[in-house]
Amino acid sequence: MASFIQPSEAELERRKIVQINEETITNIHSTDFPGHYPGEDNSWSFETFKNTFRVQHHYLTPAESSFSLIGIDAAIANALRRILIAEIPTLAIETVYVYNNTSVVQDEVLCHRLGLIPFTGSKKGIRDFLRWRRNNEDGTPGPVYDYNTVQLRLQVECTHNPSAAPGETDPTKLYNNAHIYARDIEFVPSGRQVDLFKDPEDVIRPVHPDILVAKLRPGQLIDLQMHMHKGIGADHAKFSPVATASYRLLPTITITRPILGQDAEKFARCFPRGVIGIERVTAEEASVAGSGYEGHEGEKKAVVVDAMKDTVSRECLRHPEFEGKVKLGRRRDHFIFSIESTGQWDSDELLLEAIKTLKKKCERLEKQVINMVR
């Protein structure tokens, strides 16, 4: 059996770059699969993947995170994105029992607004104790228990404020409860929930207490009860644990010929701030024959500082003075993720949970394939 050809590092790097031209995009298809290049072994190898796959964290807060997954295929990156949006369970208001609503907000609109309010609470209670509410055999909702339902209550009435100053026109000072906010929603624990959600930091509560629910005037009131259940974003967007979960490919900017003087400053203006920097040509660079810097010692030159900040607008390709001096592209195996949590999960937990979910899906698929073969 003939030995396989090993392509050069430069060739492998070229294959990873999606080339961005003035009017077109080329080299867009993945080619790292067996049989595409004669004489090469491009079969998938776990050892190769383990040695090349990397995770880089850019910034991290409980609400937002940004990181790069390097060395994976677009199918895997997109699977993680879709799982983040639609398959990680959260707790949200599912049923609203309206006893009285004399506000100007219709019942169905009010219920919809309440359902979209994100809540948080004890992680142990929400994830380990609370379970799915199952339907009956006829498809109707199953019974309510302390381990599958969280009860909330909203009882607010607007009245005149007798302490308001004469001539006051601000409704929030003129009336009591003129505005109803998410913080006015009360958690009503039942059964074992009393112990699991007893501490102030563990109580089921809105992530953002200042979300405006409705406005009232004297004589108007809202009296309702709500039931929260576990669900996933595939059922309804209110169950999605993320406000945004997106990725983009890492931009690449290659300066092939020197860009000097006023052209360097113009070149920097073609990109977002921080992408291109201005430096001075050193004596060492000016002394190298064929570098393009001969005789330009001390002049300004354009250098790439941080390509990750680039939005790939292709503005630099529209100016004739930069023709043949720059190449734009994107790395097909470098995915820059951006995740914004709605508050029930910390942003760094979401990626790990998405990987767990993907692993379970793969295990189920493996069992199905084995059963098919049998």
Rank of each mutant, 00 (worst) to 15 (best):
I278E: 03
D199T: 13
I72F: 10
I255C: 02
G115N: 05
V98L: 14
E137F: 14
Y293G: 01
K300I: 00
T252H: 01
R153V: 11
R374A: 05
S347R: 07
L352P: 00
G142W: 12
T159P: 02
E11D: 14
G343Y: 04
I259C: 00
Y145F: 12
L350E: 09
P206T: 12
P62F: 08
E157M: 14
V18H: 06
E87R: 12
R318M: 15
Y247H: 03
R332Y: 07
N371H: 13
P218Y: 08
D41F: 08
P166R: 06
L216K: 06
C362M: 14
P218W: 01
A75L: 13
R331I: 11
I5M: 06
F322K: 00
I339S: 02
L249K: 09
Q262P: 01
E294P: 07
I259M: 02
R318D: 01
F239V: 08
R15S: 03
L174H: 08
D32T: 03
K309M: 11
E323T: 13
K230R: 15
F129R: 05
T26H: 12
D170W: 11
I93L: 03
Q155C: 10
I20Q: 07
L249N: 12
A74R: 06
K230D: 06
P272W: 07
T244G: 02
D306F: 00
T256D: 03
N42A: 14
E201S: 10
L91Q: 12
F67I: 06
Q56K: 15
I253R: 03
N177L: 06
H296C: 11
I117D: 01
E47W: 12
H112F: 06
L80F: 04
V144I: 14
E186P: 02
A234K: 15
F271Q: 08
V281P: 03
P162Y: 07
A243P: 04
P272G: 02
S68F: 13
I253W: 05
R133K: 15
P118I: 05
L152D: 00
C158P: 01
R318V: 11
H179S: 11
A164D: 02
D346N: 13
A234I: 07
T169N: 06
S43W: 09
M226L: 09
P218R: 08
L216E: 12
A2P: 15
L250I: 00
P62K: 11
T311E: 09
A286P: 03
N21H: 15
I76C: 10
D41E: 05
A289G: 05
N78M: 03
P7A: 01
L249S: 06
N135Y: 12
K360D: 14
Q106E: 12
S240C: 04
T252M: 08
G290N: 05
D128R: 09
L358V: 01
D195T: 11
F46W: 12
A77F: 08
E315W: 02
H334R: 09
N177D: 06
F187Q: 03
T159V: 14
H296M: 08
A214Q: 00
F129V: 07
E201N: 09
I85N: 01
